[in-house]
Amino acid sequence: MITIVLFIFAMVGFAYWWLWRQRVLEKPWAEVGPKADTREEIGRISSAAKTGLMFFLAVVTSVFALFISAYFLRMELPDWSPVMKPEVLWINTGLLVLGSGAIHWCSKAAASNNLRAVQVSLFATGLFTFTFIYGQLMAWGQLNDEGYYLNSNPANAFFYLFTGLHALHLLGGLWVWSRTTLRVLAGVELEEVRLSVELCRTYWHYLLGVWIVLFGMLLST
């Protein structure tokens, strides 16, 4: 449970640090008038969406941290035998890096109002990401062919679980990606998709980070 406890400590520490900066030490009963509020902007939809995404990523991190905790606890039991790591995972990792790079490029292009570049980079994002998921399925197939079934060892079960869960999260991102792409193809103003693209960028980078952690963990154990 060390992983999840460390994660929670980090979250709680961050929350306390943030609250500390919100003047929680001042005396609210002694202040009258609206000036006490120093926020410059209130209720912007863009900042709301980004805050919402940050909390969602915290939830997802909690899920993965718990699975990783369970992984390390379960590994200590005697029936554990490590799973084969298919070579294709390296190629997949490269694909995901490319996908992440493409969406990053896309957000730059959207910021500078370059429609052509937005179209190309969005297409590239989808292509690389779908290929990544296909590659993960190939890895599953290879494991299955070699006899590493889901229920024959907990190490295999965790492998399928981690990769499957990660791919499901990517599919969720691809759903938002497809809506954004359709709107771009329908010819809406770039300004209207900028927020979606920025949110996608954060999400893709985050899932790339998760994959690198998971892949590193699987390789080293």
Binding site: L19, Q22, R23, V24, E26, P28, G33, P34, A36, D37, I42, G43, R44, S47, A48, T51, G52, F55, F56, V59
Partner: peptide
């Protein structure tokens, strides 16, 4: 719960009206 919960925290953090500091 997650869908609702994201709403509750984001509303508290982002949609408080003018003058509504956290400590109010």
């Amino acid at each position: 719960f997650t869908m609702g919960g994201l709403n509750y925290v984001t509303t508290v953090l982002q949609a408080r009206t003018r003058g509504m500091t956290l400590m109010r």
